[in-house]
Structures are given as structure tokens and as C-alpha cells.
Write a protein that binds this DNA or RNA. Structure first.
Lengths: 105, 105
DNA sequence: GCAAATTATGTCATATTCGATATAATGCTG
DNA sequence: CAGCATTATATCGAATATGACATAATTTGC
């Protein structure tokens, strides 16, 4: 795994001890994590574009500031469902979500 | 809402009583449901392409036949997370998932 | 038509995710 | 620096998703 990608994961709070520890994640698990991180980044970007605080966004989606923080941090306790619902609440269309998931495209 | 779309939702087990009942779903909720259904269809298509029974797929993803059936039926109790994980297990790439979500793209 | 295989539906105990809350950490502006 | 807003982290009971199981319905091949 490239150091770049690894740093991204570690920065997002995924405990990635040593490189070999990391390897116990299956490719599919890594893929899911990356999808979550892509959605996270998209969420944060949209929120900032709309000049909203995490607390304000939380109100819009009937959630809490702490959960928004976790969403943006790519916390493992956050489901893709919640990320998608939040993106929709920020005005994202299905297509936008698809693009976020694809990573580049 | 077009009758076509509505029939799709009803067929998938989303209790959509009358048209007015249906309207109590927010556009975002409808969007989520449609995303789920897109992923469902993609899942079933992939499984059939690979000539697997629901039970066989269930084994691969450490789940059960009944849950696979629910996934393919677009059952409300199934998360997007599980659908994505299942698609990955069937060999789908991120891009494939993105395409499924976008509808076209 | 009838087995056998496959798929659908209902239920349940357990596991995971949820919003909420508290509080710590960081950033910003005077 | 001090106050204030914003964001991060930890923990909780409640809500939701989960696999497993039972069993019904459906499809398939003979």
C-alpha cells in the first residue's frame, strides 16, 4: 500500500498500527473504508461551500454536532447510509454521490 | 410521481398506500430508496451472471439466504452498507457501484 | 404433477449505529 | 492573553440492522 493512502487512513482515525497490521484488512474492507472517506470529504466540502457549521448542518439533518464531526472524520461508527442522507440534505444529487464514490472518474 | 416509478417501489415492498400517503415521503427519502433499489438490482444481476444461488452468495459474504433475498427485494431493513459490501464481494469495483447509484452515468 | 432446489417472508436475540450529552481541544478576534 | 465559536473525542441508552432460523411460496427439471 502506498504511504499516501496509508496516511490518509491513519489521519482519519482508522487504527493502522504497522504495515502488517494493516494487511489484515481485506481488499474489500479497504474499499469500503475508502468509499466512506470519499463521501466524508465530499460532505465536508459541501458543508464549507455552504458556510455551515457542523452544528448547523446537524440541525438540518436532525442529528448532532458530534456525529457530523465523526462523519467528516470518516469514523468507523458512521454508516454509508447516514453519509448519503447527509449529502442529500446538503443538496447533492444521486449523480454527485456517485461521483464522490467513484473517487476520481 | 409517475406510475412506473411507483409500481417499482410498491413491488419492492415499500408500503405505498395511496398517492397521498406516498407523498409523506420527502424527496430525500425517495432518493435513498431509489439508490437502494438500484444497488439491489445491480446485486441480483451480478449474482445471476455468476450463476450463484442466494444461499451460495450468502456463504461468501457470511450472511444468510434470507438476508440476500431481502437485499434483492430492496427491503427497508437492509442498509446501503450491506449492499455495497455484497457488491464488492461479487467483484464489483468502486466504479461499478458508482454507476449503479447514478442509474446511468 | 411431483420432488428438489431456489427464493420469499416472518421472527428474534444480538450487534451495530444512532442522537444526545459532556467535555476537551483547536481556532479566531479583539 | 481572554473570551467565544467551532470542531474533536468519549460515552451512553435507544433505535435500527444483522445473521440465523423456521417455514411458506415459487421455480425448475424430470
Amino acid at each position: 500500500m502506498e504511504p499516501t493512502k496509508r496516511r490518509k487512513l491513519e489521519a482519519a482515525g482508522w487504527k493502522v498500527g504497522t504495515a502488517s497490521d494493516f494487511l489484515q484488512l481485506s481488499p474489500d474492507e479497504v474499499e469500503i473504508i475508502e468509499i466512506r472517506l470519499s463521501l466524508s470529504r465530499s460532505l465536508k466540502q459541501r458543508r464549507l461551500e455552504q458556510q455551515l457549521s457542523q452544528a448547523e448542518l446537524a440541525q438540518n439533518i436532525h442529528s448532532s454536532q458530534s456525529r457530523v464531526a465523526k462523519m467528516e472524520a470518516g469514523d468507523p461508527s458512521v454508516s454509508i447510509d447516514l453519509l448519503v442522507r447527509s449529502l442529500l440534505a446538503l443538496g447533492a444529487a444521486r449523480r454527485d454521490i456517485a461521483i464522490a464514490i467513484a473517487g476520481d472518474l
